[in-house]
Deep mutational scan, measured.
Amino acid sequence: MDSLVVLVLCLSCLLLLSLWRQSSGRGKLPPGPTPLPVIGNILQIGIKDISKSLTNLSKVYGPVFTLYFGLKPIVVLHGYEAVKEALIDLGEEFSGRGIFPLAERANRGFGIVFSNGKKWKEIRRFSLMTLRNFGMGKRSIEDRVQEEARCLVEELRKTKASPCDPTFILGCAPCNVICSIIFHKRFDYKDQQFLNLMEKLNENIKILSSPWIQICNNFSPIIDYFPGTHNKLLKNVAFMKSYILEKVKEHQESMDMNNPQDFIDCFLMKMEKEKHNQPSEFTIESLENTAVDLFGAGTETTSTTLRYALLLLLKHPEVTAKVQEEIERVIGRNRSPCMQDRSHMPYTDAVVHEVQRYIDLLPTSLPHAVTCDIKFRNYLIPKGTTILISLTSVLHDNKEFPNPEMFDPHHFLDEGGNFKKSKYFMPFSAGKRICVGEALAGMELFLFLTSILQNFNLKSLVDPKNLDTTPVVNGFASVPPFYQLCFIPV
């Protein structure tokens, strides 16, 4: 009986604490739906499609509103004006990374994606500088992407125009580009180590996009005490870190300090320079996690976009025909596509942009946080508050993009057929937390897609009208449904 009384008292205290925290903070924060004790607004949000729920709530509470995930307040920004004001106009104040408990377990605050403060700034600055020195957006990395595009075309030829699921092959190409940047090595598509790495990356994007992960991140005790797919994700990350550590040891034994070959060499050189400046942010643990982040951000996002792009091109054969006509006119058949071609191919450029806009790969991006107490639109948001960005509300804005739910390359073309930029184009987020590999991803999408369409016609196994382009999961990332196609050599 005594234990029951204690339990009831504990629960009562928890409920009172929950109510007090919510009521004391709500006077400062933007308005929002009334949260339930302990669980907050979790029942009012469709976990399978958070973005749709945010759109519905914005119609009631406006472009800036507050939700509670458990006891934790989260300020939501919906629509271009609110997102721009926060991420661009007040970029420094909104540059923090929001709480992501599962990532905390995986990387302990290291790396480039989930770190904060001085650690994040130094690692991000170093990573950007190193990638630029190796030619991100310049010639040397373009050579690597072109080489991988040629290998991709050869792998597709091996399908002999038979029906195939493109998931694996389209994942190999961007993964190999990242391998060449980090390890100075590309792998054969049949290499077992490479296959294991690909498998872990593919599993992780599916797990991260599941409703279960949303629950884990908002009720963090689940991570330590409950079984579930989150444990598989943590094991996959541990596998990748151990693999990278092996490569780091190989580099330490063979590195030429006067001739760095890749990202690992550059990081080890930085560690050597910083060894007298303790404590340094440049450690082996930081290198492991930064490399894992580059793999995660640079492989599955690009391969998922490529997979979605081919599905949309199957669905819209008239678009595919126009792209192939432009390829034939500008590039021809006797040389590989290059980035200089893009400025002469406005329709193809528009298609690449429209694919990214339409699929809305990361509907709410990753959570941000404010780095200080900030007054925002007459609300006071306390330091450390998590900020949720609705990228969907920007990419699918119906004023900027008429009929935003329709796939239409003319969203990025003017009346004369010239490519038209849009400030609403934010597939990689915006501001200080914009994806480090934005330029690389854009290069890969253009070169891989043009190389495929230069060499193959795409054949659907069903009537294009019957192809479903609805994402199968739409949590962290929008993942396309399973499909097969035939690559018919031109």
Rank of each mutant, 00 (worst) to 15 (best):
S3Q: 11
L4G: 01
L7F: 14
L7E: 10
V8K: 12
L9S: 05
C13P: 15
C13L: 14
L14I: 14
L19P: 13
W20A: 09
Q22H: 12
Q22F: 14
G25R: 11
R26Q: 11
R26H: 13
G27P: 10
P33N: 02
L36S: 07
L36G: 04
I39T: 05
N41I: 03
I45L: 12
K48F: 09
I50Q: 11
L54N: 04
T55C: 12
N56L: 10
N56K: 13
V60P: 04
Y61L: 02
Y61Q: 04
G62Q: 02
P63E: 12
V64M: 09
T66C: 05
Y68D: 03
F69Q: 05
G70C: 07
G70S: 03
L71N: 15
L71G: 12
K72R: 12
I74H: 07
V75F: 02
V76N: 03
L77R: 00
L77Y: 04
H78N: 13
G79F: 01
G79Q: 05
E81P: 10
V83S: 07
V83T: 09
K84T: 09
L87G: 07
I88G: 15
D89M: 09
D89Q: 13
E93R: 05
E93C: 08
S95H: 10
G96D: 14
I99Y: 15
I99P: 15
F100M: 13
A103E: 15
E104G: 12
R105V: 13
R108K: 11
G109M: 06
I112L: 15
V113S: 12
S115P: 10
G117V: 05
G117R: 08
K118M: 12
K119F: 03
E122G: 11
R124Y: 02
S127T: 15
L128P: 04
L128C: 11
M129D: 06
N133R: 08
F134G: 13
G137A: 09
G137V: 09
R139E: 10
E142V: 04
R144D: 04
R144Y: 08
Q146K: 13
Q146G: 06
E147I: 07
A149P: 00
A149S: 06
R150C: 08
C151R: 06
L152P: 00
K158V: 04
T159W: 05
T159E: 03
T159C: 04
S162G: 11
P163R: 04
D165Q: 01
P166N: 00
P166K: 01
P166C: 02
C172V: 04
C172L: 06
A173Q: 00
V177P: 00
I182C: 03
K185S: 06
K185V: 05
D188T: 05
Y189T: 02
Y189R: 01
D191P: 01
D191V: 01
L195F: 04
N196P: 04
N196D: 15
L197E: 00
M198V: 07
N204S: 13
K206G: 08
K206H: 07
L208T: 10
S209T: 14
S209V: 07
W212L: 10
Q214Y: 13
N218I: 15
F219Y: 10
P221G: 14
P221A: 10
P221V: 07
I223D: 06
Y225C: 10
F226Q: 05
F226W: 09
P227V: 10
P227F: 13
T229I: 15
H230Q: 11
L234A: 11
K235V: 05
V237G: 04
A238P: 04
F239N: 09
F239L: 08
K241E: 05
Y243T: 08
Y243G: 03
K247H: 09
V248S: 05
E250S: 07
M255A: 10
M255D: 06
M255N: 11
P260R: 09
P260C: 09
D262L: 01
I264H: 01
L268Y: 04
E272S: 13
E272P: 07
H276P: 12
H276A: 12
T283D: 08
S286I: 09
S286H: 15
S286A: 15
L287R: 02
E288H: 05
E288T: 15
E288L: 15
T290M: 10
A291R: 01
A291I: 14
A291V: 15
D293M: 13
L294H: 02
F295A: 04
G296V: 12
T299E: 01
T301V: 04
T302S: 07
S303L: 02
T304V: 11
L311I: 06
V319M: 08
T320R: 13
A321Y: 11
V323L: 12
V323N: 01
E326P: 01
I331F: 03
R335F: 04
S336K: 06
P337D: 00
M339G: 05
Q340D: 13
R342S: 07
H344S: 14
H344I: 12
H344Q: 14
Y347N: 01
D349C: 15
A350Q: 00
V352N: 03
V352T: 11
E354R: 00
E354F: 00
Q356S: 10
I359P: 00
I359E: 06
I359G: 09
P363Y: 02
T364H: 12
T364M: 15
S365H: 04
F376N: 04
R377C: 05
R377K: 12
N378V: 01
Y379G: 04
K383M: 06
S390F: 04
S390R: 11
L391N: 11
L391H: 08
T392M: 07
D397I: 05
N398H: 14
K399Y: 10
P402M: 11
N403R: 10
M406C: 14
F407V: 01
F407M: 01
F412C: 01
L413P: 00
E415L: 07
K421V: 09
S422M: 10
F425D: 09
A430M: 11
G431S: 06
K432G: 08
R433C: 01
I434P: 08
V436T: 12
A439Y: 12
L440C: 00
G442I: 15
M443F: 04
L445M: 09
L447P: 00
L449I: 07
S451F: 11
L453Y: 03
Q454I: 02
N455W: 04
N455M: 06
N455L: 03
N455V: 08
L458I: 13
L461H: 10
L461F: 07
L461V: 15
V462C: 11
P464D: 05
T469H: 06
T470V: 07
T470A: 13
P471C: 06
P471G: 07
G475I: 05
A477L: 12
S478A: 10
V479H: 14
P481I: 01
F482P: 15
F482D: 14
L485R: 00
F487Q: 00
I488T: 11
V490T: 13
